[in-house]
């Protein structure tokens, strides 16, 4: 197995893990009452079983190198630093909901905006803070006040 096969194989194995979770979830649904031919567990069992079969096929294809990987695209090659850029997005995906939970919309949304801006190549820390604060405020005003979505009455809340 070459390095080129590794990423697709990891993807296929992740799918297999998801399929295993689905099979377990489907078989823990109790069968419905006797009078219904197709109870609540029938569809989930058939579908999770199919997914498991498809996952096995995907693993085989990945081992044979039949699954394409955009990381190796020659048409539009990956620019160096891809892991760092995805790292910033992933960090945002973890810390933005955390900030949202602990400190309210302003903090959470600014973390989300800032990390993505960093991932897209913004370097100047003050510009990132300024743009994310301004955009978040505008969105809060429009969404919460005009569109009456509920982003929280306080922009910043304290976790205690």
């Amino acid at each position: 197995m070459t390095a080129a096969h590794r990423a697709p194989l990891a993807g296929a194995l992740a799918l297999a893990a998801l399929a295993a979770l689905a099979v377990w979830g489907a078989w823990s649904i109790p069968e419905g009452p006797d009078f219904s031919t197709v109870g609540p567990s029938a569809f989930p069992r058939v579908l999770s079983g199919t997914l498991a079969l498809l996952a096995i096929a995907a693993v085989i294809q990945a081992l044979r190198g039949k699954i394409p990987d955009e990381a190796r695209s020659t048409e539009e090659p990956l620019l160096p630093g891809a892991n760092a850029r995805v790292g910033w997005v992933l960090a945002g995906m973890v810390f933005s909901p955390l900030g949202l939970y602990l400190f309210g919309f302003l903090v959470g949304a600014m973390i989300g905006f800032g990390t993505v801006a960093r991932a897209f190549g913004a370097k100047n820390g003050w510009a990132i803070i300024g743009w994310s604060a301004a955009s978040t405020l505008v969105v809060w005003l429009v969404f919460d006040k005009v569109l009456t979505l509920k982003l929280g009455n306080q922009l910043i809340m304290l976790p205690f």
Binding site: F120, G121, V139, L151
Partner: peptide
């Protein structure tokens, strides 16, 4: 691009 995509994530999340 940084502000555009930052804004897209912001609007989706909000």
């Amino acid at each position: 691009a940084p502000w555009l995509y930052g804004g897209i994530i912001l609007i989706s999340t909000a």
